[in-house]
C-alpha cells in the first residue's frame, strides 16, 4: 500500500479546495439560504406541517442531500477529469500506486469537501429553523456514506467524460432531476398513488428518506431499505471502478 501516494493526492486535492475556499463555502451557503427563503418562507407559510414537522425543518435533510450529492459528484469528477484534460494524468499512470490508491485519494478528498459543505449547510439551516436531530449518529453515518458513494460515482463519471459538456451532462440531466423528484421538498405520501410507485424506482428517494428519518424519526420508506439502497449503489460503483482498473478504460490505451 502506497500510503504516501494517497496522502499526496488527498492533500493536493484539498489544497485546490483551500485555494478557492471562498467560493467553496459561500456558494452552497448562499444557495441554501435562497432555498429556505423560497421553499421555507414563501411556500412553507402555506404548508403548515408535513407529518408533524414544520415545513421549514422538513426540507432541511433534502436540501443537504441535494447539495451534498451535487458537490460529491462534481468534485470527484472534476478531480480526475482535469488531469486527463491537461495531460498530467501521465503521472498517475506511471506512479508506483495502484488504481485503488488513486481512487481513495481522489474520492476521499471529494467526499471530505462534500461532507464539510453538508455540515456547513446544516449549521446554516439552524439559523432559519429549529432543528433537533433524533439520531445524530445515524445522521452522520448517512451523510458520510452518501458523500463517499456519490464521490465514487463522480470519479467514474470523470473517467468516462471526454469533454466538459459530458462532465456537466450527468449532474445536470440525472442528479438534479432525481434529487428534485426524490422527495427532497415533499413527502412521497403527498403524491397520487401512481406517482408514488414510479418514485420508488428513484434511488435518491431512499437516500433522502433515510436521512430524514435520522432527523425526525419518520420516513417514506423503511430505514433498512434506505441503507440497502446506498449499500447497493456503493457496491455497484466499486464494481465499475474495479472494471475500469482491469481494462484501463479511457485511461491506458
Amino acid at each position: 500500500m502506497n500510503l504516501q501516494a494517497i496522502k499526496a493526492i488527498y492533500l493536493f486535492e484539498m489544497s485546490r479546495t483551500m485555494r478557492t475556499l471562498g467560493q467553496s463555502i459561500v456558494s452552497p451557503v448562499l444557495s441554501t439560504s435562497l432555498y429556505f427563503v423560497v421553499f421555507g418562507a414563501a411556500i412553507g407559510s402555506r404548508i403548515d406541517q408535513v407529518e408533524g414537522v414544520s415545513y421549514g425543518a422538513f426540507i432541511v435533510p433534502g436540501l443537504i442531500m441535494l447539495t451534498v450529492l451535487t458537490q460529491a459528484v462534481s468534485n470527484a469528477s472534476f478531480g480526475i477529469y482535469f488531469p486527463k484534460f491537461i495531460g498530467t494524468v501521465y503521472e498517475l499512470l506511471s506512479a508506483p500506486a495502484s488504481f485503488y490508491e488513486i481512487v481513495i485519494g481522489y474520492v476521499g478528498a471529494a467526499a471530505t469537501k462534500a461532507l464539510a459543505i453538508g455540515l456547513i449547510i446544516l449549521a446554516t439551516a439552524n439559523f432559519f429553523v429549529d432543528l433537533s436531530i433524533v439520531h445524530p449518529f445515524w445522521m452522520l453515518g448517512f451523510l458520510v456514506l452518501t458523500c463517499f458513494s456519490f464521490a465514487l460515482f463522480g470519479f467514474i463519471l470523470g473517467i468516462w467524460a471526454q469533454n466538459f459538456e459530458q462532465l456537466q451532462l450527468v449532474p445536470l440531466l440525472v442528479i438534479t432531476p432525481l434529487v428534485f423528484l426524490g422527495g427532497s421538498f415533499y413527502s412521497i405520501s403527498m403524491l397520487p398513488p401512481a406517482w408514488q410507485t414510479v418514485t420508488l424506482f428513484n434511488p435518491v428517494v431512499y437516500l433522502v428518506s433515510g436521512f430524514r428519518w435520522s432527523f425526525f424519526g419518520m420516513a417514506d420508506v423503511s430505514v433498512g431499505f434506505s441503507l440497502l439502497a446506498i449499500g447497493l449503489f456503493t457496491v455497484l460503483c466499486l464494481a465499475m471502478i474495479a472494471w475500469i482498473f482491469r481494462t484501463g478504460y479511457r485511461l491506458r490505451s
Binding site: 502506497n2 504516501q4 501516494a5 496522502k7 499526496a8 493526492i9 492533500l11 493536493f12 489544497s15 485546490r16 485555494r19 482535469f82 488531469p83 491537461i86 498530467t88 503521472e91 498517475l92 506512479a95 508506483p96 500506486a97
Partner: peptide
C-alpha cells in the same frame, strides 16, 4: 502541468505519489 498550482507543491506532489 497543473496551471494553478505552485512549483513547490506540484514537485512535492510527485514525490509523494512515488511513495
Amino acid at each position: 502541468l497543473e496551471p494553478f498550482e505552485s512549483v513547490i507543491n506540484t514537485v512535492r506532489f510527485t514525490r509523494g505519489l512515488f511513495g
